[in-house]
Design a protein around this nucleic acid. Structure first.
Lengths: 147, 147
DNA sequence: GTCTAATAGTTAGTGTACTAATTGATAGGG
DNA sequence: CCCTATCAATTAGTACACTAACTATTAGAC
């Protein structure tokens, strides 16, 4: 295991967890890109669909809290998902301020296709599932720590 | 430790390593934001300075390989760093195609101030250094796996 | 019941990321 | 020597991500 000696050079690039995090994030998202491209989806859009497959309809606020995304980010993203035909957007009947984002039939159908994606990503990574579980656990701790 | 049962729902949001990675990356970068703001820097700009503090001048190509960034991303970013007065940009004498990106005196002076940043981030995270080292090691393995 | 504060989304502006096309410079083959 | 393929950087176009300002609606205080 690589040892990080903070007493030496605290600014050494190859010691920065923030650098490793952003490179790893972008690199893993890059693995999804060719898998999502046939559906016309970006990775953030895919995450929104994951949330909607768990529950639909959902408000922008709810999606934002679940995905840790700003409403200002979601608003145009959801319009693009609507233009692709995967979701519909309509004001909530009970509260005209809130938007009800729902899966369309096309959006629900997509789930079957998408189920193959996680396996392909793990295969492409070629890492042990146990190691990915460990990574997930540490990342969850980091996310908790940043709140 | 959280267990990820891939045999159950492969699309469950709270199991996705990609989601945890992107949230963790954004959350950690958010910790840097108030620390970098006094210098007018963004996190990607800070990473470029880390690279230049290790060696200067460097070409756009060299910076791109080191930081895993596209030249199309670096090109405007470097102009902003120049506008801030931290770097200078001039064509290489030996090869007119290449750009020599150098630290200015102001850019070199900034290093002293920046040395406090990693400690403040670790303090703010409130995690054990050992755990961050472990995270760094796993991330490095992920980055290797994506190449 | 009205008036104000809070809430849900949207819009605008800046700064990455990424792809593809473009410009200018260099190097090698003939 | 020239001609073409390659290379370094830039530009254009799309899509987040974040802050701040704005609009429309709702809820609470009185």
């Amino acid at each position: 295991m690589t040892s990080i000696d903070l007493s030496e050079d605290p600014l050494a690039l190859d010691r920065q967890v923030c650098f490793a995090l952003s490179v790893a994030s972008r690199s893993v998202i890059a693995i999804y890109r060719p898998l999502l491209e046939p559906f016309g989806l970006t990775h953030p859009q895919y995450l929104v669909l994951l949330a909607l497959w768990e529950r639909s309809p959902r408000s922008v606020r709810d999606l934002g809290q679940t995905l840790r995304a700003e409403p200002a980010t979601l608003s145009p993203l959801l319009k693009r998902l609507e233009a692709l035909g995967y979701v519909s957007r309509q004001r909530s009947a009970s509260d005209e301020r809130a938007l009800a984002v729902s899966l369309t039939a096309k959006g629900r159908r997509l789930r079957r296709e998408a189920e193959k994606i996680p396996y392909r990503v793990v295969e492409r990574l070629g890492m042990e599932v146990a190691e990915l579980e460990q990574l997930h656990a540490v990342l969850t701790r980091v996310i908790e720590a940043t709140r």
